[in-house]
Design a protein around this nucleic acid. Structure first.
Lengths: 159, 159
DNA sequence: GTCATACTACTCGGATAAGAACTGTCCGAGTGGGGTAGG
DNA sequence: CCTACCCCACTCGGACAGTTCTTATCCGAGTAGTATGAC
């Protein structure tokens, strides 16, 4: 899995602590964890294309959450970065096997493909059932000073 | 996910239909689906290193299942090819964040890491709960001629 | 006829290239704010 | 003093290289079977 998923998760979480309506630049988000700003920008663009973030150009521009954290599942973020296709992609080997036919969609009929898909469905279900708001609430319970510290850092970023 | 996982699944399934004690060469297994024999051989080597297959060199050599199909879970095969590490690897970004410490293992404490791990655990649980014997039984129920057709092809492979 | 031996063909195994995907960087299009000159 | 305009700095956005991982291939080590020759 791409490393950008982790960056996107942490950045969305940090954005959820920003002042409402405030746009945060990719550079400031990158400064949190010493990430390459241009590359993080690329990931944020993907999140914007997926409708998770909205982007504003120019001075006072940046990114902000486009939906309430309750409406953003972890699966949404993963899909925005990794794409919608399954990790296990059935190449329909059975077409070339004994008794294989070109008219059959083996992605649906191959038992192995079914099992792999069922497993990935469990993974997706788990991620779809947790939202950014859940994560934020858990963090705030364990580390109550985090929202304040994050907002501070938005304002007083080292660069 | 590597394409080799699919090849390994189908090859293990085919091997489960071989005569007991019969070794099948990588070339014959590759002929099933027009796969590159040398590259499939590489995947079979990984399965052998993982203890799923046993390999025999020389004439009359090849690969065969090293355990009963009931003792081979789909997760075993995936791990043999893809390796044991998680798809989502936590880079411990929080170390560089506000209040981050070098002495904390954020793979265990970061909430995002925990959520991603929980989801992958569901995926692993689903794969670990299904064995090669389960898949074989399902295939034999739906396509009763498959075992015979497979053994035929082991003997009369086109090359 | 029987046995030992050398040979050959065949297989796995790891070392070696080609290609693709991920990672990282750069510059241009567009925008909002501030300064400046005029009224 | 107020207003309109222009300039500029700043940000996203997509196009452009570097690096790692996956995919694919090739040749050598080792082995079982076979043919051969001696006894």
């Amino acid at each position: 899995m791409s490393e950008g998923v982790e960056w996107a998760m942490h950045s969305c979480l940090n954005l959820s602590w920003a002042e409402p309506g405030e746009a945060v630049t990719a550079r400031r988000l990158a400064a949190f964890y010493d990430l390459p700003p241009a590359y993080l920008n690329k990931q944020l663009q993907a999140l914007a294309r997926a409708g998770i973030l909205s982007s504003v150009s120019g001075p006072r521009g940046g990114f902000r959450l486009n939906r309430a954290p309750e409406q953003i599942s972890l699966l949404d973020i993963v899909v925005a970065i990794e794409g919608p296709e399954d990790a296990f992609r059935c190449e329909q080997l059975l077409r070339k096997g004994p008794g294989g036919s070109d008219d059959v969609d083996y992605r649906a009929h191959c038992v192995i493909s079914q099992e792999m898909r069922a497993a990935e469905l469990e993974w997706r279900r788990a991620l779809a059932g947790r939202t950014l708001a859940d994560v934020r609430a858990t963090v705030e319970t364990r580390f109550p000073h985090t929202p304040e510290a994050t907002r501070d850092r938005f304002v007083n970023a080292p660069t």
